[in-house]
Simulated scan of single mutants.
Amino acid sequence: MIERFLIWAVFLILPSEIWAGDQQRELEYAASLEKNNPVGQIVWLNSEQVPFLGLFTQAERTDNTNAVIVLHDRGEYPDQLPLIHGLRTVMSQHNWSTLAIQLPLREIDAGAADYYDLFDEARGRIQASVIYLRDNGAKNIALIGYGTGAEMAAYTLSLDPDALLALVAISLPLPSSSVPPAQIATFIPKIALPFLDLYAEFDLPDVVDTARQRRMLGKDNPVYRQVKMYGQNHAYQQDSALVIKRVYSWLDLMLNQN
């Protein structure tokens, strides 16, 4: 209880120039998660002296050598249903420890463009998560991003393209924006990792309409693969279990080829 109070107190005294997002929303999500006692362990990490919450779930039948960092969609949280919750809990049953982290947030009605100036903050959180997993025995770390989380993952890996084992981008859009963090089309060719580009048949327009363009951008990467999930929409509520199976099966294949 004392530790939780001290962490929350740090949020309240942080100067606005350090914290760019909506810390009150993060606190509310953190309080809800702690109240609901989710599967896994609540951990507090730090990036640029800013604390953020993560949900760490150990692999059930192996050590934590293989791990994934799970990034939620815009405005959501690290136990988002059904997809993020499923990824972080089911993959732990298939020899992958998981760390789902809270990404920086904007106010409730904020749109995609409002999040672009948070991408560097998200990158810092991803880097802090890698350090945490390495300190807990991880040697092979993959990054799984969903929606805006996939954009943040692509941005991060474009600046350090060989850092991890693989990238799984779920519902990755190609935004029509001129701001540097939104140039996903320039990031994809820079990522030399195994790259799974997975999207839904009835996904958002800037995901579905740019699927061919993403394939062309990834064509020089011999371990780029695009998968279309038929009958699904952006929320993947129809069969999230099949999506999760595609993800861990592909990651297992990449691990065995590494």
Rank of each mutant, 00 (worst) to 15 (best):
L198F: 00
Q49T: 15
Q257D: 06
V130D: 04
Y116P: 12
D197L: 07
K245G: 01
A128P: 10
I42W: 07
N258K: 12
L99M: 13
I42L: 11
N46T: 15
W96N: 06
R61D: 14
L33A: 07
A192L: 05
A138T: 00
I131K: 10
G54C: 08
V243N: 08
G54N: 08
V70P: 11
A100R: 06
Q232F: 00
A153I: 06
Q49M: 15
R214T: 03
S16K: 13
R88C: 09
Y116V: 15
P194A: 13
L251F: 02
Q41T: 12
V243I: 15
N256T: 10
D220E: 06
F187H: 10
Q58D: 14
I7R: 14
E28H: 13
Y132R: 00
L157M: 06
L164G: 01
Y236W: 11
V43P: 04
E60K: 09
N136P: 02
E3R: 14
Q80K: 12
I108M: 11
T65S: 14
L27N: 04
I101V: 03
Q238Y: 07
T156G: 01
I101Y: 00
D120Q: 07
V168F: 03
L45Q: 10
G231C: 12
I126A: 00
L53F: 07
G21I: 11
L193K: 01
